[in-house]
Simulated assay, not measured.
Amino acid sequence: MGEKWPEDWARLVNEYLDFEAAAGYPDEGPRIGGDSRPAEVGEFLTGGRKWHSPPKIRNLGKLGEKRSYADNWWMWWRSLQPSGREVVEETGMMTMPMEMEWGKLTKMSGRNGFLQVMASLFWWGLEEFRDGREDKSGWAAAVGDVEGILYGVLRSGEVQ
């Protein structure tokens, strides 16, 4: 479905596949936190992970719009980051220091790790492209941020 999406999405998918390959394609893995994740992710997980039936996002919104999918997604994503990343007040985006302690991100393989992040971005993309929205910058920024993190984790050589 995402093959006609911008090249950024294809790069992210490739980085994700390289990450899982480096981890040895485990089925299980440590569970990532869920305190601030979008409700749709939790519903997908508790509803039996029906890949053929992605959840409908009720309020896509944007970063900074309280209770929107986009804002909840960014809060969840921030909660997964190493301590070296900081939120830039003006934009709500995060810094990408040259040197980071990758920590728990190196262990986020398998169905309970980055796969949840990838699925949540895919659903977001489905909504963006289905509705023909003009401004896809929030989704594109999220895709770019996840790609940058996966790139850094892979280059660290610490994937477990």
Rank of each mutant, 00 (worst) to 15 (best):
S79F: 04
G24S: 11
K4Y: 07
R78W: 08
D18A: 12
P26I: 15
R49G: 06
P26V: 15
R31E: 11
A21Q: 04
M108G: 02
A119N: 04
K56L: 13
W9A: 03
V41I: 07
E20W: 09
K4V: 02
F122N: 04
F19Q: 00
G92I: 12
Q81Y: 11
A22H: 02
Y16M: 08
N59P: 01
E20N: 03
F44E: 02
V117T: 12
L80R: 01
R111Y: 13
K56S: 09
V41T: 04
G24Y: 11
G24L: 14
E3K: 05
M108R: 12
G2D: 03
P97Y: 07
T95P: 03
E43V: 06
A119L: 14
P54H: 14
N72W: 08
E28Q: 15
N72G: 09
L126R: 14
K50G: 01
T91W: 06
P38V: 05
F114L: 11
L121K: 01
L80K: 04
D18L: 10
E86R: 14
P97S: 09
N112V: 08
K66W: 07
W73M: 10
E3F: 04
Y25T: 15
Y69H: 11
P82Q: 06
S109F: 06
W73I: 13
T91L: 05
W76C: 09
D35Q: 10
P55K: 12
G42N: 10
R58D: 08
V87M: 05
G110H: 12
N14M: 10
E99I: 15
E89D: 08
N14Q: 12
W9V: 04
E15L: 07
G33T: 10
L115N: 03
M75P: 00
Q116S: 07
W51A: 14
Y16P: 00
V41F: 01
Q116I: 15
W76F: 13
D18E: 06
K104H: 15
A70W: 01
A39F: 03
G2P: 00
R78P: 01
F19N: 00
M98E: 14
K107L: 14
N59R: 11
I57K: 01
G29E: 14
L63A: 08
D71Q: 12
P97M: 03
L63M: 12
A10N: 02
N112F: 13
S68N: 05
D8W: 04
S83F: 05
I32N: 03
R58L: 12
R58W: 07
D27F: 14
K62I: 08
W123I: 10
L115D: 02
W74T: 12
S53A: 13
S68K: 05
S83P: 01
P30I: 15
P97V: 10
F114N: 04
N59K: 15
F44T: 02
Q81N: 09
F44H: 02
P82N: 13
V41H: 00
R111V: 14
G34M: 09
M75H: 07
G125F: 09
E90T: 10
